[in-house]
Amino acid sequence: MDFKRIQWIFLLIFVAIDVFLGLQWYQGIQFDTVDTVGSTSVLKEMQGDDISFKRPSDKVGEGFYIAGQDGPEFTAHMENLRGLSTSYNSSTRTLTAQLGDKKRFKLNFDNPQRTLDHFIRGSQNVLHGDEYVFSEELSQMDKHEIVYVQVVPSGKVYDSSGEVHFKLDDDGYVSGYTQTYVSQPKILREKTPTISEEKALTWLYQYNQIPNNTTVLWTKLAYTKLLDVNNTTVYVPTWFFGLRTNNSDNVRIKRINAFTGTIVKDTPQKVNIVNELQEKEVIK
């Protein structure tokens, strides 16, 4: 009888062990399909921290360093604009335009680009307007603003130096816009592989940039300003993540340099080597 009881106890214990091991094994194979070793368990860890996101792609992309000028050159043909009052701020390098009363128009909030695409392409409305495209992600940031971003070789500029922001009043009328523009964007160096979306996301998490209870709303690979040198700005491919903490409505944007995997700082590095570079050119 005692022996039988021992057998029963053993049976129960082993059933419990089996259940435990089974669970362990199941969790182990769950992410087995993905080949990138490190990222998978980090993604699991993120889910554990109540961070929700769409499964990121592990494909590497390609991109360039791009140089351009974001000075006032683009405002040279301001006389082409009609029905607008304009002013240029040379410290922020921003053109501000107010639409005259006749020119104001109402926007359909669900589909703002339908009307605006037409407007922005008119050369009497926006300078170089045909070089901008609608950005759904950035337009979600502020109810009173619709954002268009500039298209440069092989990508878009998601940076305050190449955007048009349309201002909306409370009734949904477009009252004006601010514009920045990158002149003569050109490719600096050969095409170089970028890190994958998956790597960028997991690294952002590992840099402690994604708080718990956060939703990753959108991800985007676009250009951002890295460096001001001379009168030239250098742009680098960057992974953008739109984050929203679950207890607030604010969307915050985090950026990872897609070449080096480092965090892109809010203020780009300014380098003053202008004189040296110019001197050298004189000597040569």
Partner: peptide, 29 residues
């Protein structure tokens, strides 16, 4: 059944030990 559950637990142990995902997990930590 006692023998059976012991075999099952040994199988799982073996599966877990040989599954590379577990080693990766450790390496990654």
């Amino acid at each position: 059944s006692l023998v059976l559950v012991i075999i099952i637990s040994l199988t799982f142990t073996w599966l877990i030990w040989t599954n590379p995902a577990h080693f990766n997990k450790n390496a990654n930590e």
